[in-house]
């Protein structure tokens, strides 16, 4: 390997577009491993014209891999940069095993951050903003939901890939070491908590129909409850469900339980 080979936009773009198929062949043994290998092929073909080296490179990436989809381009960018470094390494100092080691080292923390941002924050905000509107039949709810998911995910993919290729490892190590990453994750949780709290009164409704004739007046249970605090029952019910989930009750059991509760309370005339 004496000739200098450098990666160009053409191969890198191919890798980027193939990153979209990260779940194209999800298996228990390799998870996103097969699609990751598939995405690396254009770059490996360019870097290793010699068949022997090429086969070794393919083998290197035929391993287990799994992280949040939006961060796959970032990891691919790093892998591309490292493969390029290795292919042009004349000193023999570069250990190719480090390429796989970095992949494995990154996927866990990135999945942690990614799941809390993409599953736990952006999707949640999109749902909190969009679903109540859509449930009322407003198409704006659907559009907002799509934008709030697609915009952050597309930006993370595109800039993540660029950043990964141009020294992403160092950047990640720096924000992890100085505490910025942990703070960012916590701030996302703060935002998620406000949005979830706000969803309670907007999406959980507990219609109380119970009334009682008492001598001169009528006792209306819903008015008494609203007098204590509006949306009291939705709040208590949500916290109760959360407690059940934390205690390990199966979600489907809770769903059927609430269906039963709704029917029972309706038959009794309370709802």
């Amino acid at each position: 390997m004496t000739n200098h080979v450098s990666l160009e936009k053409k191969e890198l773009n191919k890798v980027f577009w193939r990153s979209y198929q990260a779940l194209g062949c999800y298996s228990y043994d390799k998870q996103q491993g097969i699609p990751y290998l598939r995405a690396m092929v254009p770059v490996l073909e360019k870097l290793y014209p010699e068949r022997d080296q090429f086969l070794k490179a393919l083998k290197r990436h035929n391993t287990m891999f799994n992280t949040t989809c939006a961060f796959v381009p970032f990891c691919l960018g790093i892998s591309c940069a490292m493969e390029e470094e290795y292919a042009n390494d004349e000193s023999g100092q570069f250990d190719p095993e480090s390429i796989g080691a970095v992949k494995i080292a990154l996927m866990g923390p990135l999945a942690g951050i990614g799941d809390s941002f993409f599953w736990g924050t952006f999707r949640l905000i999109a749902c909190g903003v969009g679903a109540p509107l859509a449930a009322e039949g407003n198409p704006l709810g659907v559009i907002l939901y799509l934008l709030l998911n697609l915009v952050p995910s597309t930006l993370t993919r595109w800039y993540g890939f660029q950043l990964g290729y141009k020294g992403g490892r160092q950047f990640l190590a720096r924000i992890q070491a100085d505490g910025t990453l942990a703070k960012l994750t916590e701030s996302a949780k703060v935002l998620a908590m406000v949005v979830i709290g706000g969803m309670v009164p907007q999406i959980v409704k507990f219609p109380v129909a119970f009334t009682l004739e008492l001598g001169g007046g009528t006792f209306v249970l819903s008015e008494v409850l609203d007098g204590i605090m509006p949306n009291l029952l939705p709040l208590l019910l949500s916290l109760f469900v959360y407690r059940l989930i934390m205690k390990g009750t199966k979600v489907n059991a809770i769903i059927f339980g609430l269906l039963g509760l709704g029917i029972l309370l309706t038959v009794l005339g309370i709802m």
Partner: peptide, 17 residues
């Protein structure tokens, strides 16, 4: 009526995150 209280399940699961 049950369909009105069911979203509490979604909130409960979200809080886990």
């Amino acid at each position: 009526n049950a369909s009105m209280i069911l979203p509490a399940v979604g909130i409960g699961i979200l809080m886990q995150f």
